[in-house]
C-alpha cells in the first residue's frame, strides 16, 4: 500500500515537472530567446555547443537553443488545439451515446468506430494532399482522429454515472436529461476526461513530430521539433547532436504528459484505486 502511494505521487510530480518545464520554456520564448531563432548566419554554421551558442547552431547557422524554445510553443499549440477539438466534439457525443441507449447512441458509436479507422497521420496526409500541409491541417487532423478516444471514455463514464442512485433520484424528480448531463454526468466524468486529455496530449505531440518530420506539419521557417529532426537527418554522421537535442525535447514532453496522465488516473479513477 505504501509503495502504491509513493509511485502515484512520483508519476504525478515528475510528470507535472516535465510538463511545467516545456510550458515555462514556451512562455519564456515569447519574451526572450538567446538569439533570433530564424536568423541565418553562414559564418556560424554547425557550431558546437558552448560559448555564445548554448546548444550550438544548425546547418544554416541558426541557434538551436532558441529554435528549441520556440519549438516548444509549436508543440503546445498543436497539442492544445488538437486535444481541444477532440474534447469539445468527443465529450458531448460520448455523453449523448451514454445517455440515449437507443439507435442514436448506437449510431454515434458506429460513426466513432469508423473515424477510429482513420489514424491521425493518414488524415493529416489527406488534408495535406487536398489543402496543402500546414500546422492548421495537422492540428485539425490530430484533433479529429482523437475524437473517438474522448467519445469512448465519456460514454463509459456516463454509463457508470447513469447507474447511480442520485441520477435515479434526479430522474424520479423529473429532471430533464440536459440538466442531468450538466449537473451530474459532466462533473463526475471530468476526472476521466482530464486523464484522457493528458494522454491524448502525449499522442498529439508524437503525431505532430512525425508529421513535421514527413513535411506534413509545421512549414518552414517556423521552428518545430519534428522538422528540426528531419533537417538533422542528413548531417547525422557528423553532428548527431542536431537530432538528439530535438529528440530529447520530444521525449521529455511525451514522457511528461504520459506520467501526468498516469498520476491523474491514480487520483481520479476509483476503479484502479480499488484494484491496487
Amino acid at each position: 500500500m505504501t509503495t502504491a502511494v509513493r509511485t502515484r505521487n512520483t508519476s504525478l510530480v515528475v510528470g507535472a515537472v516535465l510538463v511545467g518545464l516545456v510550458v515555462v520554456t514556451a512562455l519564456v520564448s515569447f519574451a526572450w530567446t538567446p538569439h533570433d531563432p530564424l536568423l541565418v548566419d553562414a559564418a556560424v554554421r554547425l557550431r558546437g555547443p558552448g560559448g555564445d551558442y548554448l546548444l550550438g547552431t544548425d546547418k544554416f547557422g541558426r541557434d538551436i537553443a532558441s529554435q528549441l524554445m520556440v519549438g516548444a510553443r509549436t508543440t503546445l499549440y498543436v497539442g492544445v488545439v488538437a486535444v481541444g477539438i477532440a474534447a469539445v466534439v468527443g465529450t458531448p457525443l460520448g455523453i449523448l451515446a451514454g445517455m440515449s441507449r437507443n439507435w442514436l447512441g448506437e449510431l454515434v458509436m458506429r460513426v466513432n468506430d469508423l473515424v477510429l479507422a482513420f489514424p491521425a497521420l493518414l488524415l493529416a496526409i489527406m488534408f495535406g494532399a487536398v489543402y496543402g500541409a500546414s500546422t492548421l491541417t495537422a492540428m485539425i487532423a490530430i484533433g479529429i482522429a482523437t475524437v473517438p478516444s474522448f467519445a469512448r471514455i465519456a460514454r463509459s463514464g456516463t454509463l457508470q454515472v447513469m447507474g447511480t442512485e442520485y441520477v435515479l433520484a434526479a430522474r424520479a424528480a423529473g429532471r430533464s436529461r440536459r440538466w442531468i448531463a450538466g449537473r451530474h454526468v459532466l462533473p463526475n466524468i471530468s476526472g476521466l476526461l482530464l486523464v484522457q486529455s493528458s494522454v491524448s496530449f502525449a499522442i498529439a505531440v508524437l503525431a505532430e513530430a512525425a508529421l513535421s518530420f514527413l513535411g506534413f506539419g509545421t512549414r518552414p521557417p517556423t521552428p518545430s521539433w519534428g522538422r528540426m529532426l528531419q533537417e538533422s537527418q542528413e548531417l547525422l554522421a557528423v553532428e548527431p547532436r542536431l537530432a538528439l537535442v530535438p529528440g530529447a525535447a520530444i521525449a521529455i514532453a511525451v514522457l511528461g504528459f504520459n506520467l501526468l496522465g498516469d498520476g491523474l488516473r491514480d487520483r481520479f479513477d476509483p476503479r484502479l484505486e480499488a484494484r491496487r
Binding site: A210, S232, L236, G247, I250, A251, I252, L255
Partner: peptide
Amino acid sequence: QLGMAVPAFLAGI
C-alpha cells in the same frame, strides 16, 4: 515508460 516517449523515427535515426 521511457520507450513510449521516443518517436519511432527517432529510434530509427
